[in-house]
């Protein structure tokens, strides 16, 4: 017999989840099947899918490579101004993505270091490199936060024991800590990838939102909505939902079993 409390909470959960499902699902009802297929196999959509996956995979790899030492440092070591550094890294999660986009653009554009980079023949904005930079800045704080929790959850005494058995810090990190963080690392990778794929405002600003040049799926949706091509816009949206669903489903399936549970 379920208590009233339990029933109440289950009802709230189901109601809100259903609301989410209906809102997201309604997008699938808007385009005609023919319009959806035409949009899906259009040159523009193929370009957007390729660019999104290409930039997102590179960004996600960079995010993981950077977040491992940052998260481990924040979890294990004490150093001056540690709290301040934590706030700085978390900050982008708290303000709108558009702010990150503008900040990166200001920094890398002609008002910042852009002039010097131009002189060296390096261009980091309004191209796929700019997209990767924008995705990196958006996804990194989430990845650090997730992996930080994972490292916190690993008892440092495993590392102490490994050290006492003759392994130095580096070997201990690779032999013990990383394998124990495997599931958290996997989940972080998936979330980072999903975050990179879905990044919009900062990518629009830093990449420039140029048709068939810096047009990711999210940007494509925006550009086509602006020009009134609903089929292309909604197809981009549907693809984003499908990709997100697949990534979350993969994470749910493979990140469940944990050494530390």
């Amino acid at each position: 017999m379920r208590s009233k409390f339990e029933i109440g909470f289950i009802v709230i959960t189901i109601a809100i989840t259903l609301l989410f499902f209906i809102v997201i699902g309604s997008m699938f009802l808007i385009p005609s099947f023919e319009g959806f297929i035409n949009a899906l196999f259009s040159e523009e959509m193929a370009f957007a899918i390729t660019l999104t996956l290409y930039t997102s995979i590179i960004s996600a790899i960079l995010v993981i490579l950077c977040c491992i030492p940052i998260a481990y440092t924040l979890s294990r070591y004490e150093f001056p101004l540690k709290s301040f550094f934590k706030i700085i890294i978390d900050l982008p999660m708290a303000f709108p993505e558009i702010v990150i986009g503008i900040a990166i653009l200001m920094f890398l554009g002609s008002n910042g270091i852009g002039g010097y980079l131009d002189a060296l023949g390096i261009s980091l904005v309004f191209n796929s490199t700019g997209i990767i930079i924008a995705q990196f800045f958006v996804a990194l704080p989430y990845a650090v936060r997730m992996l930080y929790s994972t490292f916190n959850y690993i008892d440092p005494r495993y590392e102490f024991v490994s050290r006492s058995l003759g392994y130095n810090e580096t070997s201990t990190f690779f032999n013990i800590t990383l394998p124990l963080a495997k599931n958290g690392l996997f989940a972080t990778s998936i979330i980072s990838l999903a975050r990179c794929i879905g990044t919009f405002a900062s990518v629009l600003f830093v990449g420039g939102g140029i048709l068939m040049k810096t047009e990711t799926l999210a940007v494509s949706m925006y550009l086509n909505l602006s020009t009134g091509d609903i089929d292309l816009a909604i197809t981009s949206g549907i693809l984003l939902v499908i990709i997100s669903f697949i990534t979350i489903a993969i994470m749910e399936k493979y990140a469940k079993e944990s050494y530390l549970q």
Partner: peptide
């Protein structure tokens, strides 16, 4: 240091 340690809880490496 050549010193071994045994803790109260199970600290066997689960991997």
């Amino acid at each position: 240091r050549g010193i071994g340690i045994v803790y109260q809880d199970n600290t066997l490496f689960p991997n």
